[in-house]
């Protein structure tokens, strides 16, 4: 079985992978997936905390469900915006969509 350190390391790697996707990938959908990956890393932390330290409490379960629900709402609105982005610019490449710079 995994140890708590192992689980926290995995969630840390997931989190960094999500952040890296966000920074390096130019595709808007990939950026959104990066955010989802980071959110799920947080979820893994909640579950790890429950399993190893606080098995008698239920807050972590509720928190995970809450995060999944809200992340779904966020993704729905996000994809709608990306769709509009594609309609207006003909691309979802974030590097090419730069009307504003300062």
């Amino acid at each position: 079985m995994f140890s708590i350190t192992g689980l926290l390391t995995i969630s840390g790697i997931l989190f960094v992978a999500g952040a890296a996707a966000l920074i390096t990938r130019r595709n808007a959908v990939a950026a959104l997936m990066g955010v989802e990956l980071m959110l799920n890393a947080a979820n893994l932390n909640f579950v790890a905390g429950w399993r190893y330290f606080w098995p008698e409490r239920l807050d972590a379960h509720v928190a995970v469900l809450l995060v999944i629900t809200v992340a779904a709402a966020e993704a729905a609105v996000g994809l709608a915006i990306i769709l509009n982005l594609y309609r207006k610019f003909g691309t979802v490449d974030l590097e090419q969509i730069r009307l504003m710079r300062g």
């Binding site: 708590i4 926290l8 969630s11 989190f15 999500g18 952040a19 966000l22 959104l32 955010v35 980071m38 959110l39 890393a41 947080a42 979820n43 932390n45 909640f46 790890a48 905390g49 190893y52 330290f53 606080w54 409490r57 807050d59 972590a60 928190a63 995060v67 966020e74 996000g78």
Partner: peptide, 19 residues
């Protein structure tokens, strides 16, 4: 999205530590 994810990750760590 990043703000929320970062914040939640932090909150989850605090939860793991303090329950």
């Amino acid at each position: 999205g990043v703000a929320t994810a970062v914040l939640l990750f932090g909150a989850a760590l605090l939860y793991a530590r303090y329950g």
